[in-house]
């Protein structure tokens, strides 16, 4: 079945990324800034895809890593005047560290217990930040890093590229076999010698790293970090909705989901006010109950030719 070497999905995504690479030069800023947001959501979707998509561990509180990344950039730029690109790296590093620490404890919990423990951690994080005057407490941090569409764009573009490559590599390689085994039956996977705990922690760390990087870009583009906005569970829900709609665990699903969820909700701002999340919520219900494989999974099931091409 498997085509040797790199598949069509790989080249498709590569072509798309190359196209995105030159777009800012072809179009005015007003287009680039929409693409920045689209790439930001894409980055979040790939990030949660590592853990929830690949292993089935639903990380409802994933926003906590976004928040950590945002505060890393916000505080370092505000207090030490650190260059924002370094702030993004710092956000990624802290996202990784926190993900490993949190994952070490919470990944022992199965199914719904894991999901709930991530939610309470995200809520607790918000409540703790509110009482940290070093991070601006409830007043948050207001930044003035300027309007830097090119820097924003290529930073988030780079993050997405990394995520795509890693996702593809995992899904294609030996790691993917072990991970799929965890998803279908964790105990069976363990009994055939898959190092389940290490694999889960590795994926959770990756997802924390990229969510942290994405969060840092968020703080950078919105010129500030505010506790309620940054730790808003709506972010968790949006990224989750994106991979569910796009296709969990796949290499193509997250970007497809981000496009399908973000672009309409942006256009809706000017048309059908207040309906975005209602529609997204409804779509998630329908997809979870009737087509749990999402767009990519369904296309693969329906069409024999697409099965080999979409990953």
């Amino acid at each position: 079945m498997r085509i040797a070497g790199l598949g069509v999905t790989f080249f498709g995504l590569l072509a798309l990324m190359l196209l995105l690479l030159i777009l800012p030069f072809a179009f005015p800023f007003s287009t680039s800034v929409i693409l920045i947001n689209l790439l930001f959501y894409t980055a979040l979707a790939y990030s949660i895809n590592f853990i929830t998509g690949m292993t089935g561990y639903v990380s409802f509180g994933h926003v906590v890593f976004l928040g950590i990344g945002a505060y890393a950039l916000g505080a370092s730029a505000d207090v030490y005047g650190l260059d924002p690109v370094l702030g993004v790296l710092l956000g990624a590093a802290l996202g990784l560290v926190f993900a490993l620490a949190i994952g070490l404890v919470t990944l022992r919990f199965r199914g719904v217990y894991f999901a709930i423990s991530t939610v309470v951690i995200a809520l607790a994080a918000l409540n703790i930040v509110l009482e940290l005057p070093q991070l601006g407490g409830s007043q948050g941090i207001i930044l003035n890093l300027g309007f830097q569409p090119y820097s924003w764009y290529y930073t988030i573009w780079g993050i997405v590229l990394f995520e795509m490559l890693i996702t593809y590599y995992i899904n294609r390689g030996k790691l993917g076999l072990g991970i799929r085994a965890i998803k279908s039956d964790e105990d069976a996977a363990r009994s055939v010698g898959v190092n389940v705990s290490a694999l889960k922690l590795y994926l959770f760390g990756l997802s924390g790293l990229f969510a942290g990087a994405g969060g840092a870009v968020f703080a950078w583009t919105t010129s500030g970090v505010f506790p309620y906005e940054t730790f808003s569970l709506t972010f968790s829900l949006q990224m989750l909705a994106m991979i569910i709609i796009g296709g969990v665990g796949t290499s193509l699903g997250p970007i497809l989901g981000a496009v399908v969820v973000y672009l309409p909700s942006y256009y809706f701002l000017t048309v059908a006010i207040g309906t975005q999340l209602i529609i997204i919520g409804f779509a998630v219900v329908v997809i979870a109950l009737f087509i749990p494989e999402g767009i990519v999974g369904t296309l693969k099931r329906r069409s024999a030719s697409l099965r080999e091409l979409l990953e």
Binding site: V58, F60, G111, V112, A115, L237, L240, A241, I244, L277, I278, I280, G281, F282, A283, V284, V285, V286, I287, A288, L289, P292
Partner: peptide, 11 residues
């Protein structure tokens, strides 16, 4: 878990 999550967004 996922379908009731969608329901909560919807409601």
């Amino acid at each position: 878990l996922v379908s009731t999550f969608g329901l909560s967004l919807f409601m």
